[in-house]
Design a binder for these strands. Structure first.
Lengths: 203, 203
DNA sequence: GCCAAAAACGAACGTTCGTGCTATTCTACG
DNA sequence: CGTAGAATAGCACGAACGTTCGTTTTTGGC
């Protein structure tokens, strides 16, 4: 089917557009114009704007997994993988995987005070991501790389906060040192959680 | 003049609306309807939507200063004031000062990939805020409450990240323990930066 | 209580929004 | 190669958008 290919290319553009203009600011007319196709032709792929938004969230999730999460799974489980996730995240901001900054950070703050299926999809994605972060931390504990009194939920909260903070400082404020600051803060935090005697992995 | 009073009440509603629907999602028609006045009558106060948005940012800034920053200035300069700022921030989220969560967190992520005067106003406000945070940290160093190797810009970055992270976890994910997590993380971080021998202020 | 000035209104502008239809073009399989 | 079915285009719709303008109502100093 050609439709599937078209649909995919629509979604790639939709995700880029939404990362700068927001999921609500995403417009079928603009999207169609930028892709040189008719509004109705594009519209037929989704049936409603909400379906387009939901598909965009899913497409963004896939890009995120491909660009940030899956590569980190190449590192050995435990501390190295946790470190790979953190570095991968900062690199994902640096590389500009989404032109308007992290799609999910933007979507999270856009929909945090609004009900509906789109919000639910974002919440589910973020729950999943935080859960994966907690799991990586738990693994590092199980491997004996992190101290046993480390609270996975707390550490995941802190790391994710620093990720979002880095995205904010880098993209909004244009702070050139934002990513370096985040890396420093993360390194210190991780080292503090590491078991004594563990040789810190060089950067 | 009655106009000034009306303008102010328009802006209070505009700020509330924008905190849930975004500054771009803010609509003159909706705003007028909720205030039971005509679109044109409301419009005349600002002259353009962009002016309305700029005025809303300024009004939000004033509310923020009144609700979060000024109260903290009542605490003694140094460590206590820094602590008061942090606790005040978490309380500001808990109390729901803006119905859709922190106005500036939302605005920051909404405009982080878009140029224009509104973005500039948000950047200026955030620069100001981060600067104030750094200044409070510097004061705490000067008072001898924090270790001399503490980097104010780094610590301000970390604290602000935790604030935004708390707002995210609380409002989007509905994590009831989000504020407790943030408080724990902040306390640990501040204690780590405090000079040895300093008696930690009880909560 | 008068009267200029300020404020609010009501109607309309052109544009864009999301969403239906119907017709045309293209694609891929038999 | 022909043709059924998928994909896209064209057009129109009602509603809402920001904005303009002329009129009416309200306000506050004398």
């Amino acid at each position: 089917m050609k439709g599937a290919r078209t649909r995919q290319s629509i979604l790639e553009h939709a995700v880029d557009l939404a990362s700068t203009d927001g999921l609500e600011g995403l417009t079928i007319g603009r999207l169609a114009e930028e892709l040189s196709m008719s509004k109705s032709g594009l519209f037929a792929h989704f049936g409603s704007k909400e379906e387009l938004q939901l598909a965009a969230v899913e497409a963004a999730r896939e890009r995120y997994i491909t660009e940030v999460f899956r590569p980190a799974l190449g590192a050995a489980r435990g501390y190295p993988r946790l470190q790979a996730i953190c570095r991968g995240w900062l690199d994902y901001v640096r590389r500009g995987v989404f032109p308007g900054g992290c799609f999910f950070a933007a979507a999270s703050f856009e929909f945090d005070g609004r009900p509906g299926p789109v919000r639910d999809a974002i919440v589910a994605t973020m729950d999943n991501w935080i859960g994966a972060l907690e799991k990586a931390i738990l693994m590092a504990k199980d491997e004996g790389h992190l101290r046993s009194d480390v609270d996975p939920a707390l550490l995941a909260f802190e790391l994710n906060s620093l990720f979002f903070g880095a995205n904010f400082a880098f993209h909004l404020r244009g702070d050139k040192q934002a990513l370096a600051k985040a890396e420093t803060a993360i390194d210190i935090r991780l080292r503090g959680a590491a078991k004594k005697g563990r040789r810190p992995t060089s950067s």
